[in-house]
C-alpha cells in the first residue's frame, strides 16, 4: 500500500500559558509573518504542516497549536499522543507566565509519550523594558525539567524565532529512539477509513 517515498511524520506541539506568543512563533516559523493585532486565541487550523527534505530524506512536520484550550488548562490527552517534541513557551515580560511553567512541564510529563524531547522558549525579547524573567532563570528551569535546550526569542523581530523549531527537529531526527515514541504497532495494522469503500467483495456473497 505504501507509496515509494512516504514522508516520515514528525509531530511537534506548542504548549504554555495564554498570550505567551505560541501562535506568533508558529506563524513566524511557517509563514515568516507577524501579525501584531492578532488577538488572543488561535483560530481555524488544527495543525500546520511543513514538508522538509533533510539529508535527502522527506519529512512531514506537523505543528500543533493549543487552539485556546490552554486558557483553562483543558488540553486533551489526545493532543499529546504521538508527539515527538514539545516547545514550552512563556512570555519573558510576564512573571506569572514563567511561574506557570512547572505545571506545563508536569502536564507534558503526564500525557506525552515517554522520551518526548522538550525545548523551553522565553518569547517576546522585543519587550526589553518590561522584562520580568532573567534569561538565567529560564536556563535553570530548562535544566531542572530536562529540556534539551533553552532559548529566548521574539516572533515580532525574528530574534532567534526559528531556532527552537530547528533545534527540536534536528534533535528528534538525530536522537536514537526519538522517532519511535508511542508507536507500539506497525502502522500497517491500522484500518484506513478514508479509503474508498470496497465493493461487497469480502461481504456476504450469499
Amino acid at each position: 500500500m505504501a507509496t515509494p517515498e512516504r514522508p516520515t511524520v514528525i509531530k511537534v506541539l506548542l504548549i504554555g500559558p495564554s498570550s505567551s506568543g505560541k501562535t506568533s512563533l508558529l506563524k513566524r516559523y511557517v509563514d515568516d509573518v507577524f501579525e501584531p493585532d492578532d488577538t488572543t486565541t488561535t483560530i481555524g487550523v488544527d495543525f500546520r504542516e511543513k514538508k522538509m527534505t533533510i539529508n535527502k530524506k522527506l519529512y512531514r512536520l506537523l505543528l500543533h497549536d493549543t487552539a485556546g484550550q490552554e486558557r483553562f488548562r483543558t488540553l486533551t490527552s489526545s493532543y499529546y499522543r504521538g508527539a515527538h517534541g514539545i516547545l514550552l513557551v512563556y512570555d519573558i515580560s510576564n512573571r506569572d507566565s514563567f511561574l506557570s511553567m512547572p505545571n506545563w512541564f508536569a502536564e507534558a510529563e503526564r500525557f506525552a509519550p515517554e522520551g518526548v524531547l522538550k525545548i523551553l522558549v522565553g518569547n517576546k525579547t522585543d519587550r526589553t523594558a518590561q522584562r520580568a524573567v532573567k534569561a538565567s532563570e529560564g536556563e535553570e528551569l530548562a535544566n531542572k525539567y530536562g529540556a534539551i535546550h533553552f532559548t529566548e526569542t521574539s516572533a515580532k523581530t525574528r530574534d532567534h524565532a526559528k531556532e527552537p523549531f530547528q533545534k527540536l527537529v534536528d534533535a528528534i531526527i538525530n536522537t536514537p529512539g526519538a522517532m519511535d515514541v508511542n508507536r507500539p504497532v506497525a502502522g500497517s495494522a491500522a484500518v484506513d477509513i478514508s479509503a474508498q469503500p470496497q465493493t461487497q467483495g469480502g461481504g456476504c456473497a450469499c
Partner: peptide, 22 residues
C-alpha cells in the same frame, strides 16, 4: 469542512540541512 483559507494546507517544500547532521 472549514473554509480553505486554511493556511494549514500550505505545503512548504523546504530544503534544509542542519549543521552537524551526518
Amino acid at each position: 469542512k472549514l473554509e480553505s483559507e486554511d493556511p494549514g494546507d500550505v505545503r512548504d517544500d523546504t530544503e534544509i540541512s542542519f549543521e552537524g547532521a551526518s
